[in-house]
């Protein structure tokens, strides 16, 4: 479809672009919804994004679903990209980065297709980037802020806190919710992750990648729901595998990723200030 609408900026994004200063950014924003067999929830997620931010373009990435997720998304007038087979969440999100990069979006916000993120809080992510315009990624966190209790099993929360503890020490900045996929990326982050995004359980590694490429991130408190339907990519039986895999990725990442500043990238002037 023709996405280059003249009015395709949001008030949030426009505000964010203004805050960006003289960058010439138009502030066009893409919301991506990775969905794998999420027919139960994808409609309400797309509708909620439209209600919360009517001018954001919505892209649903159907990661090889066997149900009618993509048909439902098309009926909701979202742009739909359909993988011929299941790539996993990392591959699906990276497809979103590729689309955002090729269509020249300045911001991309990621909202899970299972309904656990509240699109009403997209504005909070934008508020954070407006306040701190140099930040390359804003991450919605369940664990900062006082009034939010995240209703997850204790095992899940423990795992998240272990990652949070290790990651905070590695990147030298408090990261309270490294597994949250409710994230807003600017153009630099889009370009980095379109080139290279982790495979299986990407969120934790993505934080590491940002760090080693000297991009910056912030967290902002958000509310999250328990999943609305479908099956999480992290089933309980797999959580041990998940822990080990992510830990391996973290430690391999420590010895692998060197800061890479591509020629032509914006100067990482604020790099390493954390």
């Amino acid at each position: 479809m023709k996405v280059e609408r003249a009015d395709a900026s949001t008030d949030f994004a426009a505000a964010a672009a203004r805050a960006d200063g003289p960058g010439g950014a138009t502030g066009r924003t893409l919301a991506i919804v990775p969905a794998y067999n999420e027919s139960a929830t994808v409609r309400q997620v797309v509708q909620a994004i439209r209600a919360a931010a009517p001018l954001i373009d919505v892209l649903v990435i159907d990661d090889g679903s066997t149900d009618d997720s993509s048909a439902i998304a098309r009926r909701e007038h979202a742009v739909v990209l359909r993988h011929p087979f299941n790539l996993g969440i990392g591959g699906a999100v990276q497809t979103g980065f590729l689309y955002a990069q090729e269509h020249g979006y300045d911001f991309m916000v990621q909202v899970d297709g299972d309904g656990q993120h509240d699109p009403g809080e997209i504005s909070r992510l934008f508020a954070a980037i407006e306040q701190h315009p140099h930040v390359d990624m804003v991450c919605g966190s369940r664990f900062i802020g006082s009034d939010h209790r995240y209703p997850a099993p204790i095992s899940r929360r423990t795992g998240i806190h272990v990652f949070a503890f290790l990651l905070s020490r590695i990147v030298g900045q408090r990261v309270s919710d490294p597994t949250s996929g409710f994230r807003l990326y600017n153009r630099r982050a889009i370009e980095l992750f379109a080139r290279d995004y982790p495979h299986d359980y990407p969120e934790v590694e993505a934080v590491l990648m940002l760090h080693f490429h000297r991009l910056s991130m912030r967290e902002t408190p958000v509310r999250m729901f328990v999943r609305g339907g479908g099956v999480s990519s992290i089933r309980s039986g797999k959580s041990v595998y998940y822990m080990i895999k992510v830990l391996l990725a973290m430690f391999v990442g420590l010895v692998r990723r060197r800061p890479v500043v591509e020629p032509g990238d914006a100067s990482p002037a604020h790099a390493g200030s954390f």
Partner: peptide
């Protein structure tokens, strides 16, 4: 094959549009 699947999805959408 991951890259091919991604390119295919992007290309199909572009063609449809």
């Amino acid at each position: 094959s991951k890259m091919l699947a991604q390119r295919l999805a992007l290309t199909e959408q572009r063609m449809a549009s």
